[in-house]
Amino acid sequence: MNIAGWKCCSALIAVLALTPLAAHAGKTLDLVRQQGRVACGVSTGLAGFSGVDSKGNWSGLDTDICRGIAAAVLGDPGKVKWLPLNSQQRFTALQAGEVDVLSRNTTWTLTRDASMGLHFTAITYYDGQGFMVPKQSKASSVKQLRNAEICVQSGTTTEKNLNDYFRAQGAKVRPVVFESFEASLKAFFSGRCQAYTTDVSSLVSIRDKEAPKPGDYVILPEVISKEPLGPAVRRGDDEWFAIVKWLVFALIEAEELGITQANADSLRSSPNPAVQRLLGSGDDSGRLLGLDREWALRAIKAVGNYGEIFERNLGSGSSLKLPRGSNALWTKGGLMYAPPVR
């Protein structure tokens, strides 16, 4: 090796040795402001939650959360850097700081919360695991699927739930695990498995859009697991954790208070102190989070309240037509409940 080579080598070593000093130099909020964008990890494609259209635009519930964060923190919902992540990569991407928030239909579980260096912030969708079978199947309930072959997509909590459920029944199943969503679907619809299992939110759309004849398939009534989905952030930055958490709460609170994308500006002069507080015309709720007064107003104007986000991406305004179900407000018999914004 010549002198230049040695120089290169020692420079590399020096850089490597010095890098620890640069670590954790800035908190996430400072970094986001400095770079002028929120790095958001989303799924590579799940109808209703995140997906790219033919023009390359992102849409979906998960992506709207990120837009809301960008609007609240940076004042522009477009300042999001999208990172489509597969299920293996999502946690490392968050751990390594490649994304600031992981909004990727990820189930909140103890193991993930406690041992993977991340914190779930709030729940944006209450899901559960369901089953779909062909109509002429011998099974009319999940319990009758013992010893059946069931198509699953890998890298999700689905595999473990499946096993837990049938073990509790004292039965066995044979999972056929696919890495890719499309391969698992193709296998099921060509008759490879006797049942297909995934989150209920996807089952309906899969049946309606994917099945050669949607009428030939039925979704079994049982839901075998709780799948609370929500955005997660890296551990060790309480400030950013609070911002993401309260952004979700603010969107839910906005629905409860009747604040929508359209009337948000006009409601600033509402006599209701709760509305004033949320929209920044009363007490300054943003200061405590390290943001300005109108953080929630901007987010609501950008993506609408939680109800509007739901209807646009998953509900009546979308091609999926899912009912609100558990995701209705607590005042309407659902589970969506935000702690008071005050």
């Binding site: 109808a47 979906g60 890719s180 999926l320």
Partner: peptide
């Protein structure tokens, strides 16, 4: 290809 198709319920098939 995956990105183009899997998120779009119309064309996934």
């Amino acid at each position: 290809l995956t990105l183009a198709l899997s998120g779009d319920a119309q064309w996934r098939a």
